[in-house]
Computed example of a mutant assay.
Amino acid sequence: MFPTREYLLNWARAIGRENGFTVIIQRSDNGGSGKKKIGRKTTVILGCERSGRYRQYKDALARKTGTKKCGCPFRLRGRPVRNGEGWKVNVVCGFHNHEVIETAIGSTYAGRLSGEEKSLVDDLTRSMVKPKDILQTLKERNEENLTSIKQIYNVRQALKRSRHITDT
C-alpha cells in the first residue's frame, strides 16, 4: 500500500535501480469521462525500459541503429484502493528476459536532464563551452548525475533545432 501514485512510482523505480533494471511507465489511465471511457478504472502499468519491440522505419535505406528493446515481459499494475486511501501494486509478471545492467550510466531514463540542467547546457553552449566541460560541470553540481556525453550532444542538438525553428 502506498499513500499516493507518486510514492508507488518512486518505490518501483528505487527497487528497479537496486536490482539493475530501469522501471518506466508503459501506460497510464486516469479513468476519465466520456463515451469510450465508461467503466474504465484508474490504473498505471509499469514495465522494464527494455520491454516492447523496436519499430523499423518505413524507409529500408534509413541508417542502421541498435536497440535496447528485447520484449522484456516484466509488468507491474498500480491501482487506487476502493476506499480511496492509497494505491496498491500487483505483479503481472516478475521476470526479465535479459541481463542485469552493471551501471545505469548511459541509461536513457536515468541520464535524463531536468529543465534546469537543460537551461544550464544551453547557457554553457552559447558561451562556447566544450561538451566534455559541460558534462563535468553537471557532474560537479550533482554527484548522482548519470548523464553521458552522448546525452549532452543530443540536448545541444535539440536546443539548436528549437532555436532554428523559432528564428525562421
Rank of each mutant, 00 (worst) to 15 (best):
T125G: 03
L138N: 01
T108V: 12
V100E: 11
I45Y: 12
D29C: 14
I152D: 07
T125M: 06
V155K: 00
C70V: 09
I15A: 06
E49T: 13
R27Q: 11
V91Y: 12
A62L: 01
K160T: 13
P80R: 06
V81K: 04
G78W: 12
S107C: 15
T22D: 09
D167C: 11
E140V: 02
C72Y: 06
K58G: 04
V81H: 04
I24G: 03
L120S: 01
R161M: 07
G115T: 10
R156D: 03
N97F: 00
C48G: 12
E143S: 14
I25V: 15
M128H: 09
P80H: 12
T108H: 09
G66I: 04
E99N: 11
V89E: 14
K139V: 14
T166H: 13
R27A: 13
K139A: 09
K132T: 15
E143Y: 01
F2C: 00
R77K: 03
F2A: 08
G31K: 06
D133Y: 15
L9A: 11
G94F: 13
R161N: 14
K35Y: 10
K150S: 15
P73M: 00
I165T: 11
G52N: 05
R79V: 15
R82W: 01
D29I: 08
R40C: 13
I38H: 02
A14H: 13
S51I: 05
F95A: 14
N19M: 07
I105K: 03
N10D: 05
A62E: 06
E102A: 11
I165L: 07
E85P: 00
G39Q: 09
R53C: 10
L9E: 14
C48Q: 11
C48T: 15
H164F: 06
E144T: 15
G71V: 06
E116P: 00
T168F: 15
N19C: 08
N10G: 05
R75M: 01
G52W: 08
G31D: 05
I105R: 04
D167G: 07
Y54N: 08
C48N: 04
R53F: 12
N97V: 03
P131R: 10
T168S: 11
K36I: 01
K150C: 05
L8W: 09
S148M: 07
Y54Q: 07
L113Y: 10
G31H: 06
G86T: 05
H96W: 07
A12Y: 03
I105D: 10
K36P: 00
